[in-house]
């Protein structure tokens, strides 16, 4: 009954880490400035924003749904947090932003979980709606933090023991999220609903409630990311979050979380997002024009999905 582990098995199981190491090595070799502390910290700060959102969206994806509204959610919430900061101060701004994030999640969740809208359509509609709301709210103008001396600047610019605050926040959030997903009753239910919704209902799980909750988490994560973003830029404008929904999704896919639901993890998402961040940075350091990163990113995502499919097919035929 003992089967030996083949090299193929090893690659299949640890493919993600191997790919990550390979990419780091390639980038480090071809761009000498890559491995400087300043550069790495910069990349990590950038990753932190995408990563924070992706952590939340991972819940949605594992439950078998999508959330494409996070890009314009990020835009709106960034604009919101900066404007509110100027009006009611940092504490109030944070509270309002987190609440609005939850509200956006609740709207998505209500449409998808209770009214049974297709998640792609519901969250695309939300994406578009929030674009409109942002323009309406800000009049399309850029907003800037008037008083940059408040503690609000900590989230994007501060650091603790040399570690940038955004990175710290991401690590903290990811740890909590990972624990919730892997160790709690709720996390178990998320996997069950994504893996087989009917069977989860036959097991007494209130599937709609679980799906609703994943959207709340996604909304909350987007609000956190918006706070980091606003604090880092010390301002916001109506295109600031454009395209983030796809970057987030790309990171999740690259990490190997299944878009069909029922399979995935937070650490996979983090590694996937980090990979994207390093690739992007490497390309810029190597002197490619910025738009090349879009091509490369998606080429890599497509490849990752293809390898994954091939591996699955191989497993069936192996």
């Amino acid at each position: 009954m003992i089967a030996t582990l083949t090299t193929g098995d090893f690659i299949r199981r640890n493919g993600l880490i191997i790919a990550f190491a390979a990419i780091l090595a390639i980038v480090a070799l071809s761009a000498p400035t890559f491995l400087t502390v300043g550069n790495l910290l910069g990349v990590l700060r950038q990753i932190a924003i995408v990563g924070t959102i992706a952590v939340g969206v991972t819940f949605v994806v594992i439950s078998g749904r999508l959330d494409l509204s996070v890009g314009s959610g990020l835009t709106f919430l960034s604009v919101l947090v900066v404007s509110q900061h100027n009006q009611i101060g940092p504490a109030g701004a944070l509270a309002v932003t987190l609440c609005c994030g939850l509200l956006i999640g609740a709207c998505n969740g209500f449409l998808v979980a209770y009214l049974r809208f297709d998640s792609l359509i519901a969250t695309l509609a939300m994406l578009s709606l929030l674009q409109g709301v942002t323009i309406w709210y800000s009049g399309g103008a850029n907003v800037n933090v008037a008083d940059s001396t408040t503690w609000f600047s900590f989230f994007g610019r501060g650091s603790v023991l040399g570690i940038p605050a955004p990175v710290l926040l991401l690590v903290l959030g990811a740890a909590v999220a990972g624990f919730v997903l892997m160790r709690t009753r709720f996390g178990r239910a998320v996997f069950a609903v994504g893996g087989n919704e009917t069977a989860s209902i036959f097991s007494g799980i209130a599937a709609p409630r679980i799906v609703f909750a994943t959207y709340l988490i996604s909304g909350l994560a987007t609000a956190c990311a918006a706070i980091i973003m606003g604090s880092r830029v010390m301002g916001a404008q109506s295109t600031i979050g454009q395209g983030y929904e796809l970057t987030v999704l790309a990171g999740i896919i690259l990490g190997g979380t299944s878009l069909l639901g029922g399979y995935g993890s937070i650490w996979r998402t983090i590694v996937g997002v980090a990979m994207l961040g390093f690739i992007e940075n490497g390309l810029i350091l190597m002197g490619f024009p910025y738009y090349v990163q879009w091509l490369v990113t998606w080429a890599i995502v497509i490849m990752a999905v293809w390898i994954d499919l091939a591996a699955k097919r191989g497993r069936l035929l192996a």
Binding site: R188, F191, A192, G195, N196, T198, A199, S200, F202, S203, I205, G262, Y263
Partner: peptide, 16 residues
């Protein structure tokens, strides 16, 4: 369709 989440382990299915 109704009985099991086939992507999960036996342990997780029993306690679901």
């Amino acid at each position: 369709e109704q009985g099991l989440v086939i992507g999960m382990g036996g342990r997780e299915n029993i306690t679901l």
